[in-house]
Nucleic acid binder design. Structure first.
Lengths: 309, 309
DNA sequence: CCCGTCGATCAGGAAATCAGATGCCCCATG
DNA sequence: CATGGGGCATCTGATTTCCTGATCGACGGG
């Protein structure tokens, strides 16, 4: 194919300057080099591009025509270069992170927004799932890490505390307790609870709390769909026990109250394949996610300092 | 600056094939070469473009972004190349030709049309003028050649017959003779003639013909503007003696008749600086111009075979 | 467990690139 | 008319780049 980018740059300079010597000055080359490059172009194209006249050169019709397109090429090349450079600066590679709906509902968006801005060339893949499937995928080495509720541990997985958050009771706006004020579950009669299936770690934590604190539960239904659970409690007299980081104090569709006396907290842990060490990209993502999650957890934790009603 | 065209071609191939090896096959290179070129790009851009995975490579976000622009660059480069190649094939350089209005009125357009099509990279410059100025410019070496009425010759100029054409009498449609039939000037009374100034060779030729053939001229005015002359005779009872190649038999604004008994012809000669040899480009132009001029002259010459009225 | 594939890297030779010197042409100047 | 200078082409040698073939390590399929 005809013409390298350097050929074209020198040609464009010569066209605009109407002089090989001036073009050489402008492009930090020598007159000889310009002459050679333009001869290359002319040979490759089979057309002369300049008429060599006294004291200057004059573009031929072919030169005029080629110039118009050559500047396009150079422009496009600069655009390509700077577009790619926009992605420079951050970490590179790919991370795959497993998250529960608990974290994807609110914490994920601001985390991703900040993270991809700082690491534009890093491919981030989020796998949403419940504790059971995330644990399995982490064991299979398909995830850099995952965030799940604290559990007894598993060989092949390393775990460390990620964030501790309140459990809150979520009901429709007409619920018999106050929004954003601590609530004692045993004070509530005829509690109808939506709970996850036994495959989910949190089901056991909820049953343990209920059983050991004299909470009177009238009915339970199992629902492993987080969006469905939220919609269901918003429209009925059913309630759910959910991690606080899923909800903002400003929610209007729900009555949300941190569960106290005793305080019911959930420890979220980070798990990763123990044979691997966390990549620095995954480490960076974990840090941002932890910041955003803690930010969401903080107001609810503060509310437990207030007296229950 | 970052990235040569070859870098980009190999990158694009690798992007599309998702494989360095396949890209090398497609671009007639080696796997090693592709690897090196893409490393070059990545170093120059400061960004990794591919994530190297098992059995294939996967573009990073930067790779995706760069690809979109890189294909633009390659497209633009191909467009530039083929645009320039359109100008290949014919002669190159520049010719400057001096022509009288006699030839520019009808013969020039078809000549140029044919000529520039066959010689797209040749710059053609036409200088319009009357015999005096064209001769001067030819002598000064400013013209490759010029076409002028035959004259006595001048040192420094070489001349050869170009085309012989009829002189015709041109009047308004109401003239007292028939269009496209031979006319005898001495049969016409009260001829009012528009003639060129004495600086123009044809003035002498006309006066010589008129004087030696008993033509009765009532009045003469000098007009060195050819367009003005045509318009003037179309609107008045004045007439002009003009070379036939300026007029087509289908003219409707004029009554045009070849002058016979004796036949009045004009020899157009080609003059060129005698110190130079005619460039092949000029030679080619002369040939096309002669063809077109002869084509215009032919029907008028044929008419002189018919009896005068 | 071996073999085939893929990408990275290295080393050597081929090719392109560059810079300086020189020649030529033309113009301006005196 | 001689001369000097500017501009381009061309030659040449040195440097750099480019390409290829070989080899290595990693991984996956049979």
């Amino acid at each position: 194919m005809a013409g390298t980018l350097r050929d074209m740059r020198l040609f464009v300079a010569a066209y605009e300057e109407r002089s090989f010597t001036a073009a050489a000055r402008r492009e930090h080359a020598t007159q000889s080099g310009v002459s050679q490059h333009i001869r290359n172009l002319e040979d490759a194209l089979g057309v002369s591009l300049f008429a060599r006249e006294k004291g200057h050169v004059l573009p031929t019709p072919a030169g005029e025509s080629y110039y118009a397109r050559a500047v396009e090429v150079l422009r496009a090349h600069e655009a390509a270069t700077s577009a790619a450079r926009l992605h420079a600066g951050g970490l590179e590679g790919k991370i795959v992170v497993g998250l529960m709906p608990t974290l994807t509902r609110l914490a994920l968006a601001p985390t991703l927004a900040r993270f991809v801005q700082h690491h534009p060339n890093l491919v981030v893949s989020i796998v949403e799932g419940y504790s059971a499937s995330l644990t399995a995928q982490a064991l299979a080495g398909e995830l850099d890490f995952a965030i799940v509720p604290a559990f007894s541990g598993s060989p092949g997985l390393r775990s460390r505390l990620f964030v501790r958050t309140q459990e809150v009771l979520v009901s429709s706006p007409g619920a018999p307790y106050l929004h954003a004020r601590p609530v004692r579950l045993r004070d509530l009669d005829r509690l109808k609870l939506v709970v996850p299936s036994p495959a989910n770690t949190r089901r056991h934590l909820i049953e343990a709390y209920v059983g050991s604190n004299g909470v009177k539960v009238e009915r339970m239904i199992e629902l492993d769909a987080m969006l469905g659970t939220l919609d269901f409690v918003a429209r009925t007299e059913w309630s759910a026990v959910l991690p606080a980081v899923m909800l903002e104090p400003e929610e209007t569709r729900y009555t949300v109250a941190p569960i106290v006396d005793p305080t019911f907290t959930l420890d979220l842990v980070q798990i990763e394949p123990s044979r691997r060490t966390l990549s620095s990209a995954a480490e960076a993502f974990r840090t941002v996610l932890a910041q955003e999650t803690s930010r969401l957890a903080a107001p609810w934790a503060a509310l437990t300092m207030v007296d229950a009603v």
